[in-house]
Design a protein around this nucleic acid. Structure first.
Lengths: 205, 205
DNA sequence: CTGATTTCTTGCCTTAAGACAAGCGCAAAC
DNA sequence: GTTTGCGCTTGTCTTAAGGCAAGAAATCAG
């Protein structure tokens, strides 16, 4: 499955470079300097990468593992915002901007390794590498598109369609995430999701 | 109310500079050069700033007026994504990135003036003014935060709470936008919104 | 293996919101 | 003025999804 490996400087550097080069050119020399600003955080299954009330003043890239971001509604029920698997970017932008503490928890569903870049280091990168500012802009642009798509699909589809959409687009997560969290991600109760699944099985037979 | 004025170069420049300086420093000289890349679009009430199937390859800043962004769900019902009033930023990022044509329409609810920056001009700004890249990053960061907040409130609140939230946060729009569009923005039918309003009035008496 | 905890399913009943259709009030167009 | 159309309300009926509670199945800990 997913092992809890220890990373060498070299591994970190080459992995990060690969991510950065999806958006901007990076010289091998710059890559080393940039990678040096990251720190690697281990988060064991059930442990928290970020808790409500803390400031999430860093960018994170999931190298290995799987995490779940959730918050609470007025009635204290949990609501799953997102899952972060390998190569996912994670940042609690509300608290990142420093305006307020995080209302969101990020907990590991599997033992995970996250490469984190603290805001102060990030700011120095922005100052010293104009290309990095570009990386940030492009990264945010991509996330905005996916937010918008998700928002749409969540509002316009009914519970069954949302589940089908998830099945189609995240087949891998189905195996790795307990159904109750998938339910809460899809804004359904686990009870309802269970019924939806039963009906789908019946219609297949 | 909202007049359909003609803008001078000077007006455009000083208004834009004010917007930019919320995020980055801009010299008066740069301001003139930047403003020259914008064009001013008039969109009369009921006319479209963007239609499904077009490429929205520009950034827009609403100088005056009010617009509504909407798309269609599977059953061809309308769904309102957003309202853009004075000082709002509007960009159809899905089609901006060039990946696909817009699935979204943007129509004017009032006569409007929008300052538009075409993607090719935007790209040249990004290349020549590193600060502008920063502006883009910060702008996107802010929008991401508001998307996330909106997503949360839309999923976690029931119809009545969503309406109350809107009342509290957008009191001005209530007066300027027909209720049926507010309903569709809140993911309720106009019928249900009407009932919600009646119940609220009854409980006040 | 055994007991405990968590995850998932199911039945019964309730409820929030939608579908449809009729009608009212108002403002613009003729 | 009358007519037309739009925005909003209301009544009746239907439906998708939730609340609660019990139990099955799977997983975990000792």
């Amino acid at each position: 499955m997913h092992y809890f490996s220890i990373m060498s400087e070299n591994e970190i550097c080459s992995w990060l470079t690969k991510q950065l080069r999806l958006y901007i050119p990076v010289t091998d020399e710059d890559a080393v300097n940039i990678a040096a600003l990251f720190r690697c955080r281990k988060v064991g299954k059930g442990e928290f990468l970020l808790k409500e009330g803390q400031y999430g003043d860093w960018w994170g890239f999931v190298y290995q593992g799987l995490l779940r971001s959730y918050s609470h509604d007025a009635e204290h029920a949990e609501y799953t915002n997102a899952f972060f698997k390998e190569e996912s970017f994670t940042c609690e932008l509300v608290s990142f901007s420093g305006a307020a503490v995080s209302q969101t928890n990020v907990v590991a569903l599997e033992d995970s390794l996250i490469l984190c870049l603290d805001k102060k280091n990030l700011d120095s990168l922005f100052r010293n590498h104009p290309d990095f500012e570009r990386f940030g802009r492009l990264l945010y642009e991509k996330i905005l598109v996916s937010y918008k798509q998700r928002n749409l699909f969540r509002v316009r589809l009914n519970a069954r369609e949302r589940y089908l959409h998830f099945l189609k687009n995240e087949p891998e997560l189905i195996k790795r995430v307990p159904l109750k969290y998938i339910a809460s991600y899809l804004s359904v109760t686990d009870t309802s999701l269970s019924r939806i699944r039963r009906k789908m099985q019946q219609s297949v037979r």
